[in-house]
Amino acid sequence: MIHSLRKSLIEAFSSNDAHERAQALRLKPLIIFGPQSSLGLMHLKKLLSKGANFILAVDDFCQDKEIQGIPVCNSRKFLKIAPSMRDVVALDFSQTPYTQALYKQLAIEANIPMRDLLEVLAAYDAPSVYEPVPIYRERTRARADDWLKLSEMLADDMSRATLYSILLQRLEYNRNWLKEIMIGGRDEYFGQSSDSNTFTMGKKEHFVDAGAHRGTVISKLLGVTGWEYASIHAFEPDRGNFTALQHLSPFPLERFFVHNCAVSNKQETLRFSETGTMGSHVSDAGGVTVPCVKLDDTVEQATFIKMDVEGFETKAIEGAATLIATQRPRLAIASYHYAPDLLDIVAKLQSIAPDYHLYLRHHFGYFYDTILYATPRNDWQPLSHAE
């Protein structure tokens, strides 16, 4: 599988066929499969505002007659009216293996071509995460040689297959490339059992969560370890999220330190887009300002650092250079918000800890969540003093 994926990737780097196919969708009447999926809810309204010509939505569970002004019908009715439709294209916005297989078969039965939602996102310059999909693709293509070099730095074949597949998704506008490598959210950052596909947690972890949201990952940590840990430092600049984080537990948590600030490579104040969601992020267009700190100035001990700071990871790692070099913690770092993030994060980490073993896993059927796992060990186990 590795060799065929690499060959496909090299071909995709030199081809613009996928982008041209996507642009042709601007001329077509469109049918949306799965309009109430999270990706449908995220993108449909914006696509309509950009002029996408959706003429029908197919959903077996919707009780409304319309969604965003688009007529809705169930699968059975769709099959009855499909023969009267001409020159239409169906788009799959669904996410689960069952619904994706269902809609694929539905399109076959209706004799209507089906394409992936990423193609219509590209056609109308909709965002991937923060960058428009075509820009995300072009910035990926521009560093083709660097991606191939990165593949040789990864610690196992699963990491290489993951890298090739996520890049092919970007270049080909097709989520199907992820099917063989996606491992789901259960093991994201760390697993919930000893046979997980990512890190196993010890019961003496000095855990640092940069981008703690409302304690989502910390709650998982407490559940996995049975509330056993050495210390927890949680950093969250969004005020609403921080308030929820402070009330994570109904009783006081010992050695639990919460910080209402962002993390960076220096102490500074930056503008911040505060949304009360996981997507709050540093932005020049932000409506508030937040203080930033270096992890090196704030945390004394770390055996595990989790980072998801919406594209600010490289600066956050730079601000933790001493902590990483001296404490040698395991790292789980979100690496997908902007096209070159993974390359930049690896380059920065290599300058600090060149002997770390690098693994890559992907946890969702979309541009996110690609996580870089870095460890001074050559396995998924805790550091000896954190077991």
Rank of each mutant, 00 (worst) to 15 (best):
L222Y: 07
N241K: 04
D238Y: 03
F251T: 12
I232Q: 01
P252R: 14
N241A: 10
S231W: 04
F235C: 11
D209K: 01
P250N: 14
R239E: 11
D238Q: 03
S264Y: 02
Q246T: 11
V263Y: 00
G240N: 11
G226Y: 05
W227M: 13
N265V: 08
H259P: 02
F242L: 02
K220M: 06
Q267P: 01
P237Q: 08
V224N: 08
I218A: 06
R239I: 07
L221R: 08
V258R: 00
A262W: 02
E268V: 08
Y229F: 11
E236R: 00
G215S: 08
P252K: 14
H259F: 14
H206L: 10
A244H: 13
V258D: 02
L245K: 03
A262S: 10
H259A: 05
E254W: 03
R255A: 14
V208Q: 08
F242T: 08
W227I: 09
A262Q: 01
F256C: 06
F242Y: 13
A262N: 01
V224P: 05
L222W: 05
S231L: 07
P250D: 15
K220S: 07
L221D: 08
Y229S: 10
P250T: 14
L222T: 09
H247W: 04
A244S: 13
V208Y: 07
R255Y: 09
W227C: 14
T243N: 12
T243R: 12
F242H: 11
C261I: 01
P252I: 15
N260M: 01
A262T: 06
C261R: 02
H206C: 13
H259G: 02
V217Y: 11
P250Y: 13
G223W: 09
F235P: 00
V263E: 01
V224W: 11
H247Q: 15
N260W: 00
A234V: 08
A230E: 14
R214K: 12
E236M: 03
H213P: 01
H206N: 15
T269H: 04
S219H: 14
E228S: 14
G215R: 05
N241V: 05
A234L: 07
Q246N: 15
Q246I: 08
Q267D: 11
A262D: 03
C261D: 01
K266A: 12
L222V: 10
N241Y: 06
V208I: 14
S219C: 13
Q246D: 12
D209E: 04
S249R: 09
W227H: 13
G215Y: 05
L253G: 00
F251G: 01
T225I: 11
D209T: 06
V217C: 06
G211N: 04
L222I: 07
S231R: 02
T216H: 13
V217A: 10
A244F: 10
D238S: 04
H233M: 07
L245F: 03
P252G: 12
H206A: 15
G215I: 05
K220E: 06
S264E: 02
Q246Y: 06
T216S: 12
R239M: 05
F251C: 05
V208P: 07
V224G: 04
Q246H: 10
F235T: 11
K220T: 10
P252W: 09
Q246L: 14
P250F: 13
P237E: 10
G240S: 09
G215E: 07
I232N: 03
S249L: 12
G215H: 08
E228D: 13
N260Y: 00
G223T: 13
I232T: 03
H247N: 15
D238R: 02
